[in-house]
Amino acid sequence: MKRILIVESSPRGSESASRKLAGKVRARLEAQYPEARIAERDLVHDKLPHLDEPALQAMTTQDPLEAESLKAALHLSDLLTEELLSSDLLVIASPMWNFGIPSSLKAWIDHVVRVGKTFNYIGAKVEGLAKEKKAILILASGGVFSEGPWKSWDTVEPYLRQILGFIGIEDVQTVRAEGMNIPPLAIHAVPNGEKAVEALVI
């Protein structure tokens, strides 16, 4: 393990359960892989822009001259994509908001899921280009979504697993802090997540 990328998306700072667990994951990785380079992409501080018309044109044009003229529009996307592709392990820490991910994380995904960079079309099929990488999802939620009556409302883990698989990352593990808004469960949410961190196969 030479390079690790940690993507943070919660704006709650030290109160964030996903950030607390991401810190535990990072500490374990630093102990287990002391020579690894760990990069952190904090989407709260970095405030990535959502894709605009020039960026979308640059991503989709087939005209080499137009692509060259729009190259500057893809500078940030190129940087983020290279950051992902150069990593052996991707750690994504996210809260669940309204049964989905924060828009900042969606913006990051839109910048790095790119044809010719992280996936290619091969006839009617798609080939992920970010193969032989691993990922860890660190998810925090007010309710319990890994099982029980609300499981079908969880669009976070299925979506992230699907998008990672689309670009070729299929070795994905999940750590959860669940029941953060349910008093009897909240006190156990982060400790249970910490136990899951200890059980990760990394």
Rank of each mutant, 00 (worst) to 15 (best):
R3T: 15
I6S: 01
V7M: 02
R12H: 12
S14D: 13
L21K: 08
G23W: 01
V25W: 03
R28C: 00
R28A: 09
P34K: 11
R37I: 02
R37M: 05
I38V: 12
E40R: 01
H45N: 12
D46S: 14
D46Y: 01
H50T: 08
H50R: 05
H50F: 15
D52V: 03
T61C: 04
Q62D: 14
Q62M: 12
L65I: 06
S69I: 00
L70T: 06
K71S: 15
A73C: 09
L74I: 02
L76C: 06
S77Q: 09
L80I: 08
T81I: 02
E82W: 00
D88N: 14
D88Y: 04
A93T: 03
A93Q: 13
S94M: 06
S104D: 04
K106P: 00
A107Q: 10
W108D: 01
H111I: 10
G116F: 06
G116P: 09
G116K: 05
G116S: 08
Y121F: 14
I122Y: 03
K125A: 15
G128K: 11
L129T: 06
G142F: 05
V144N: 10
F145E: 01
E147K: 14
P149C: 10
W150C: 10
W150E: 13
K151G: 06
W153P: 00
E157R: 12
Y159K: 09
L160K: 12
I163E: 11
T174D: 03
E178C: 09
M180G: 11
N181T: 10
P183S: 03
A186Y: 07
A186H: 03
H188W: 06
H188P: 00
H188M: 12
P191E: 10
G193A: 03
G193Y: 02
E194M: 14
K195V: 11
K195Y: 03
K195H: 08
A199N: 13
L200A: 08
L200H: 03
V201M: 04
